[in-house]
Amino acid sequence: MNAVVTTQKLTKHYEGICRVKELDLQVYEGEIYGFLGPNGAGKSTNLKMLLGLVKPSAGKIAIFGKDFQQNRTYVLQHTGSLIESPSYYGHLTGLENLRIMQRLRDVPDKNITEVLKIVRLEQQKHKKVAHYSLGMKQRLGIAMALLAFPKLLILDEPTNGLDPGGIEEIRELIKSLPGQYGITVLLSSHLLAEIEQMATSVGIISNGQLLFQGRKDTLQEKSKNYIFLRTGNNEWAQNLLQQKGYHPVKYKEQLRLANLTDEEIARINKTLVQANLDVIRIEEYHKSLEDIFLELTRKENNLC
């Protein structure tokens, strides 16, 4: 797989405060890469650096395998973006806004017709954008980002301000982009559910540092499953299991064990029963992506 975006130790200081710290990002072709992190984690700053809007304090950016600094125009030609809130000229109509972007990107007229169709703004194209609803502005922003049918699409919080119907619509649109137009998507969100539903790869950022990066399924696998045991005498059971080489931890009224195979669980059960201990409950607890996310980001916060 070809890397579309690679950063090396990308760092940004603002007045001595480190907003993005030594980020090594890897986005591969055909992916929908979800950039996840709490508000103020450095997501926007990082995406802006990828577009040259913010100048890195240190580190390197390569997009399409080319150094950004030296190939700015080439990279931007093949990159569409929607950063922060949508950009628009309020006194102009939706169509005129697209025409401006058409001049800047030198694309044919048919692209305008097509993107208007994709974001379903054909009926409103002659209306002044100042009179658009937030959702319509957001859709216009996506249309502008798509106008040149770029190889890479960078979207910062793309479903911000949309109603549930609109969110669903945009989500389906984004999911279809890699397959239909060969567009690699890099999007950010502070909402886990959104990333969970759209992304194929995930990068988790907190306080400017990348805590996890990889395929979404890897992250899910990474989620340790716990087994909770409840017995007639937890202390006795704990001692017994420790002797057998397990590491049970007392957790409220239960014992918690991590990373067990099914066979091990069966063996533990047998041991306890043979020792004449009542086994009341064996429960499996599966951590959701949300738990992992919270755990990762919280740990980070505690360190500070």
Partner: peptide, 18 residues
């Protein structure tokens, strides 16, 4: 002001224009 308003610097400076 056209650019200062409504985040237009973002889209203008992210266009392939020097």
């Amino acid at each position: 002001r056209l650019e200062h308003q409504n985040h237009n610097w973002n889209s203008l400076m992210a266009a392939p224009i020097s």
